[in-house]
Write a protein that binds this DNA or RNA. Structure first.
Length: 411
RNA sequence: GUGACUGUAGCCCAAUGGUAAGGCGCGGGACUGUGAUUCCCGUCACUCGGGUUCGAUUCCCGACAGUCACACCA
């Protein structure tokens, strides 16, 4: 044992973990591809301002969760805590605001300095979908539908509900905020200490409180509905209509508030009951102001992100490791010939392995251990006859096959 | 950031105030051209630092780490 430990909140993906992870990302890549999203790969670190400017000065992510450091040139660098800001930056710096809409798929590691627990890590992975350009509610619905289909393709949708809300436009929000401050100030005495802070900084967050004493007060709090401008209300209604068209079931939840400040209009979360308090498995919303804040032209956009680790945990069964074919030579002469067989199998697209040492018995044990589906046994006698014994390791059936025919036989 | 529980080999796990058992795995053998069974042999450990004690893996304190929950979030 060494005294070197993995850094806190990081984890290695090996074996089954890797297969689950890979399956989630592959599925998302494929499904989003069907919706016309194309993959971008953006840097995992950015100029700190990319995040500090956009995520909200008071958000937890910016105030205490960012991995920020100064590089050797004295620039402030931050490991990305989420993908959207980087995608918007890439859109602007590549001049792509001239060719909209853009439909972007991203995946990769994100970093947040938090206390690790189940489904929460300091380096974790997200899949991310951004639809940049359209201001129409159809776009919101399409992004959500794509997310829903990813969950379906993964087989985890049964335990998941889509909770939907609107945060309204600028005017709606301002009016609503005022109403909330008025209401919560009147009930100030009953609020939890945390919520008193929220009242100062971002009163909408109180709605999301899980504190028992807050919940009673929150239950009586005004909703945004009466404060929505006509346009914002109409937009929200449209999103719901389209969702129904896309066949996505949802439940309205007027308490949904996202953790990042850049959202407006549509906000949503896919929540599962199976993951304890880390039940949010996929979430997103509309962020019409973000591209402009990055220095680009005012550009509407919607997007979502999902936690790969959380989805991987929800998967019923881990994808199986592909079963190889084991080539088993007996003696040096056979080994030399076996290399030819090995390569012909691989050239035919068959996963094939030969161990590096051991007598027949050892090699058969080894074949069993790697869960080979078949063994190609090649001894001096076989070699003389130009055949190999191909044994099915499930059934135990064995047959002599002419060496040139082995690849076809095993396909 | 707050709290609870845990820390014994590569992994799972037992016992003990006098330095530790078992299982899996791994290596070898019974078995010199046939695996998953069986049997035998071997291999590998008390997170770290302090305190109490003749003596601490065991008791106490602290650090660190892990797990889980809260807050918050994907």
């Amino acid at each position: 044992m060494t005294d070197i430990q993995p850094a806190r909140g990081t984890h290695d993906l090996i074996g089954e973990d890797q297969r689950r992870h890979h399956h989630v990302v592959e599925t998302a890549r494929h499904v989003s591809g069907c919706y016309g999203f194309e993959e971008w790969i953006t840097p995992i670190f950015e100029d700190t301002r990319v995040f500090s400017r956009t995520l909200g000065e008071t958000s937890d992510v910016v105030t205490k969760e960012m991995y920020t450091f100064e590089d050797r040139g004295g620039d402030s660098i931050t490991l990305r805590p989420e993908a959207t800001a980087g995608v918007c930056r890439a859109l602007v710096t590549n001049g792509l605001t001239q060719s909209l809409p853009r439909k972007v798929f991203c995946s990769g590691p994100m970093f947040r300095y938090e206390r690790p627990q189940k489904g929460r890590y300091r380096q974790f992975h997200q899949i991310d979908i951004e639809l940049i350009g359209p201001s129409e509610p159809l776009a919101d619905a399409e992004v959500i539908a794509c997310g829903w289909n990813i969950l379906k393709a993964l087989g985890v949708h049964a335990d998941t509900v889509l909770e939907l809300n609107t945060l309204g436009d600028q005017d709606s929000r301002a009016a609503y905020r005022e109403a909330l401050v008025e209401y919560f100030t009147a009930h100030k005495g009953g609020l939890s200490p945390d919520s008193l802070v929220r009242l100062e900084r971002n009163p909408m967050r109180i709605l999301d409180s899980k504190e028992e004493q807050d919940r009673k007060i929150v239950a009586g709090a005004p909703t945004i509905q009466p404060h929505l401008t006509e346009a914002a209300a109409a937009f929200y209604t449209k999103v719901q209509e389209y969702l129904t068209r896309f066949g996505v079931p949802f439940r309205e939840n007027p308490r949904i508030v996202r953790g990042l400040d850049y959202y407006s209009h549509t906000a949503f979360e896919f929540v599962t009951s199976k993951l304890g308090s880390q039940g949010t498995v996929m979430a997103g919303g509309r962020y019409d102001g973000l591209v402009a804040e990055m220095g680009g032209p005012a550009t509407p956009a919607v997007g979502l992100a999902a936690g790969v680790e959380r989805l991987a945990m929800l998967l019923d069964a881990a994808p199986l490791a592909p079963a190889p074919v084991a080539v088993v030579p007996i003696g040096d002469e056979a080994e030399a010939a076996a290399i030819g067989i090995l390569q012909s199998l691989r050239a035919a697209g068959i996963r094939a392995e030969m161990s590096y040492r051991g007598n027949l018995r050892r090699r058969m044990e080894r074949a069993n251990k790697i869960e080979a589906r078949a063994a190609v046994i090649l001894g001096p006698d076989d070699l003389m006859q130009g055949v190999a014994q191909v044994k099915d390791l499930k059934t135990g059936a064995q047959e002599a096959v002419a060496i040139p025919d082995i690849a076809a036989y095993l396909t």
